[in-house]
Design a protein around this nucleic acid. Structure first.
Lengths: 237, 237
DNA sequence: ATCGAGGGAGAGCACTGCTCTCGATTCACC
DNA sequence: GGTGAATCGAGAGCAGTGCTCTCCCTCGAT
């Protein structure tokens, strides 16, 4: 049984498979970036890769699976940017680091609108996020939660008054604390989620055209909003 | 010229046209609600209405135009709910009224997830919002801006310190003030947009599954977040 | 009464996702 | 080495899509 694939990753077949899988993904990613997710055609990708459509099904069992692979890549891409922004600003204050992660997320979104829409816009219809996405999907939130912990530890993030909350919510926060943000009080956790929502909400408003004819200088507006949000986050003011 | 259609809305033909247009939209809306926007098939709608697909093109020049009609309806639906919530809470404080509008928006979103995704999720690919949508799309924001004005007038919303902002942003705010929110200072306008972003961001997080395994009691969490947001909005704290 | 516009039906085009079958190649084991 | 099984590409085909074009009937303004 174990001997049926003794050195699976070394055979020429396996290498070819790996490379072709990557090639398909690369072309698909380009199609996605250029025309959006709904226009992503398995046949068109196949044509460009130089195979017939049915052959692609040897690599991805369905169009949705191909899309899932791209979703994972997209999550990993933002995650990487966020992590890079975090470590690049390691010598600055916790609020500045949080801000820099937010800016990084927005920058990535602006540079990859369709990928952003794929993961933070409406999910493609009838598509339920499979298990495999939750890891990559948590990378950005984990960075922010870690920063929350840092800020609390350094005394930069003050709890302020704790808002009244239900038992369930309190226990949700407790579990979140246990999982990813030790010692972060409920009040800070709550404000952190607020700012996270505001970040994505703000990017959505901007990218999906809801600020058209309202805001002209998106960069300045975003920075203004996020500066204020970080003030609120750290001080509760 | 004017005599070519002397009583256009009275002829049987015209009535039939109006009714059929509505019937198509009704069926399409149901399909949208049940299977999502990408699964909205003009042919399937036609079948159910009892015509052949080509006949539908007499009423809607393309699938996108049918979708646009549904988008307008969706905007009008949330707009109506928001307006109703606003006038139902007319005797309460400005913050409570703002909160009640937010709750109304979320309630509508939960009841009509696909419609919500259609207007506040990622726009359907290759689809640019046509002029006709901007009126209905502004109904909710206008309600909130009006409440901002009320709150400022009654002294419930205090400006607090005005954050530093660029000239462009200042002039964007000035125009917004001129258009829809007279006498609302920049600081309050800015916080209003923050909370608007947070509202939509929060609903998105919830509806698109980003809080899965994090939050269990969505209702309680939303209320907590929005209460806090409204506090921030009114007091700047 | 007439004649043109409106509107439904049908065929057809180019495309999609996906399945199945059929050879050819490649790999693992003896 | 040779051999049998797994792998994989190609092709045909099915059911569905959006959209166009042509045909023809019916309604209504003149």
């Amino acid at each position: 049984m174990a001997t049926t694939t003794p050195n699976a990753s070394r055979t020429a077949r396996d290498r070819a498979r790996r490379e072709l899988t990557e090639e398909i993904k690369r072309v698909a990613r380009r199609h996605l970036a250029e025309h959006g997710s709904a226009a992503l055609s398995l046949r068109a990708v196949a044509r460009e890769v130089g195979m017939v459509s049915s052959a692609v099904y040897r690599y991805f069992p369905s169009r949705d699976d191909l899309l899932t692979a791209l979703i994972i890549d997209a999550y990993d891409a933002v995650g990487e940017r966020a992590e890079a922004a975090e470590s690049a600003s390691r010598d600055r204050g916790a609020d500045a680091r949080w801000l820099s992660v937010c800016e990084a997320v927005r920058a990535w979104a602006l540079a990859n609108p369709h990928e952003y829409a794929l993961i933070f816009g409406s999910p493609v219809p009838g598509y339920a996020a499979p298990e495999a996405t939750i890891g990559p999907a948590s990378r950005v939130p984990l960075v922010l939660l870690r920063l929350l912990g840092d800020g609390v530890a350094s005394g930069e993030f003050v709890a302020g008054k704790t808002p009244a909350m239900s038992r369930t919510t309190r226990s949700d926060f407790a579990q979140l604390r246990r999982t990813a943000a030790p010692a972060v009080p409920d009040a800070v956790l709550s404000r952190g989620l607020s700012v996270w929502a505001q970040l994505l909400g703000g990017i959505n408003l901007e990218m999906f055209g809801h600020l058209h004819n309202v805001i002209r200088d998106y960069d300045a507006f975003f920075t203004l909003q996020m500066r204020r949000a970080c003030e609120f986050l750290t001080q509760g003011v």
